[in-house]
Amino acid sequence: MIPVVLGVTILIFTIMYFIPGDPVKLMLGPDSTPEQIEAKRADLGLNDPYVVRLGKYVGGIVLEFDFGDSWVYNTPVTHELLNRLPRTLAIALASMIIQIIIGIPIGVFAAVYQNRFWDRLAMFIALIGISMPEFWVALMMVLLFSVEWGILPPFGIGGIQYYILPVFALSLAGIATQARQTRSSMLEIIRSDFITTARSKGISQMRTLFRHALPNALLPVITVIGNGMGRLLGGAVVIEAIFSIPGVGMYMVGAINARDYNVVMSSVIILAIVFALIMLLVDLVYAMIDPRIKAQFAGKRRSKNNG
């Protein structure tokens, strides 16, 4: 995981280095004189060579957990990120959970009743879910729940009711993906020999499905869930913009427009770390479920100890 994060850091730093657009000109406004601009640039260390700047930045993070200061807010980025990260994470994680809780049973259902009414209905809904863009869904939900019925707030933060619409808008496409993925995985597994063995034992249909079929079917689904986290983190930006939720996404987008380098880079790094952690978690869950993977890890560890 560490090489990944380091690589992301260097990559995003380099990208920001080369993007046209001078943050200082934006900071000082259209009236500013060239002398003012130069002075500011020197002040912020923007005239130092690439390697020096990179070194200073990475050094700051690794040695002091200091992501630098935001030029727009003039506050330490670390502090602001700590405030904003829970909001973004909460939206992304809650969406992920909702996706799992709703999407997987739909997929199982569709697989069991394959090609019959429920399957077709479930897949139709899934198709719609994937096709609708998140911001459109979000605005439609706001129109319905906030304007028409007035039961949920249309934007902002302040309590759990403010997160209900954002989470559902974000999770809709994910539910659809999850359902389709689970369905196709289940259909494959149901044809397996060990399912026939299970049936021949005389156990109930329910037990066959949930004890034998589903755990095996979930293996590829888990990977998809992990990958989906990336989509969720990205989608959180759109959702944050629509619902005016001050999370990491909005922080980052605003900073990109203002060329607030520290904020952009730090946000990207934080999100990369979160994503890497999620993938790690996915791997661990995988190992937990599938003893073959667990054996691989154990084997490696054993041979390391022996060798």
Partner: peptide, 13 residues
């Protein structure tokens, strides 16, 4: 008793 022992058992139980 089934034909292919390699796939007749649930791999994760």
């Amino acid at each position: 008793i089934f034909q292919d022992p390699m796939t007749a058992l649930n791999p994760i139980i």
